[in-house]
Amino acid sequence: MEILLQQIINGLVQGSVYALVALGYTMVYGILGLINFAHGEVVMVGAMVALAVIKVLLATALSPVLVLLLSLLAAVGVCMALGYGIERVAYRPLRHAPRLAPLITAIGVSIVLQTLAMIIWGREYHAFPQLLPNASHSIGGAVINEVQIAIVLVAVLMMAGLLLLVHRTRLGRAMRAVAENPSAAALMGVNINGVISTTFMLGSALAAVAGLMVSANYGIVHYYMGFMLGLKAFTAAVLGGIGNLRGAMLGGVMLGLIESLGAGYSGALTGGMFGSNYQDVFAFIVLIAVLIFRPSGLLGERVAERA
């Protein structure tokens, strides 16, 4: 029973991170019909930038809380600029090209960012310092620490904020208009390029926050960390129904739970043949199953292929 509860807690924490990253995939897909495969790398850059800022500021007398906030701000700023730049340089020139072209470019951008990160920060694993006391609390025999509590709370707040933005503000209405009918949106006076840039920047800001979350949770940062995380968040977006914001949130949390429960019980269920080191397999079993049985995802509408 404690194991079940513990796996659920772990799953919710990891799922919150997946959900934030999945939102970036789904927002861009919703508005451009494009899978931005470089998005995972934005998470990695967020983590790297946060770590670099922390290293510099730790040498000063600033309070740890302030250091954490400043590193978060820096990561968000850099990632927003990066997201803007990726769209401007890699995708905008291909806006009217056949769909395969931006897909290949996206993979190219991803490789470029990974390689750049490797050159700048090296191949080694970096320890991510623990800035604040991280007490553990026990609920019904399971353990959750304060970083994990913060991760879930911040993720919930950010998701609520995003939903409010998209459904209750002028910018959000413009985003939905461009997603649905770009030329009609232009006829209303919406600057389509501006809205698309803003969408990339919003998704990248969420990615930066997610980058800081995984780093603080696992205490490790690495130039390759965005690859698997990005792939899983993409899976979460597909699971929820790509293009659908609530779907990305639901898909993220569900994928976190599936992975965590799968890893917790696969050893026992298979007589020790598949242990918890097979955790990553579950995400891809989910991806394949969704693509076969419900390609539109849990909350997705069965939309016809976009023109």
């Binding site: 649905e180 009918n181 009609a184 006829l187 006076g189």
Partner: peptide, 28 residues
């Protein structure tokens, strides 16, 4: 002058096929 600035100048087009935002309410 790009399309989105022509509306501001007072030039509006009701496009062929109407182009309503199907997933928004009438008022939206």
């Amino acid at each position: 002058l790009p399309a989105h600035q022509r509306v501001r100048a007072g030039l509006a087009l009701v496009p062929e096929g109407r182009g309503v935002f199907a997933r928004m309410s009438v008022e939206e």
